[in-house]
């Protein structure tokens, strides 16, 4: 059973920004007093969190893009989003 609902909409709230780090390279997630470096998977997930796409749509898109089964992807996506929700860096 999934911990998150299909139709929840993961959103980066105001004050949380995903951006390129031109000086050091890579992608970072920036929040008050916090900077997280994102690996490729986290970057792909977070750039789809546009405040419109549902969790199900994000997983389907990742699945199509990387030709990996949804059921394989979904646990990773949920783990990241739940972790970030607890840090108040994503709303669901």
């Amino acid at each position: 059973m999934s911990a998150l609902a299909d139709d929840c909409v993961p959103t980066l709230p105001r004050g949380v920004r995903l951006r390129e780090d031109h000086a050091r390279g890579g992608t970072i997630l920036v929040a008050p007093e916090r900077i997280f470096t994102c690996d490729e998977i986290a970057t792909e997930i977070l750039k789809r969190c546009d405040g419109a796409a549902t969790l199900a749509a994000i997983v389907a898109d990742l699945s199509a893009t990387f030709t990996v089964g949804s059921d394989q992807i979904r646990p990773d996506v949920e783990e990241l989003l739940i972790n970030l929700r607890d840090k108040q860096m994503v709303t669901l």
Binding site: I28, L29, I35, F36, T37, A42
Partner: peptide
């Protein structure tokens, strides 16, 4: 994801 720390 990792919080940035100053490299040693």
């Amino acid at each position: 994801m990792n919080e940035i720390v100053t490299p040693t």
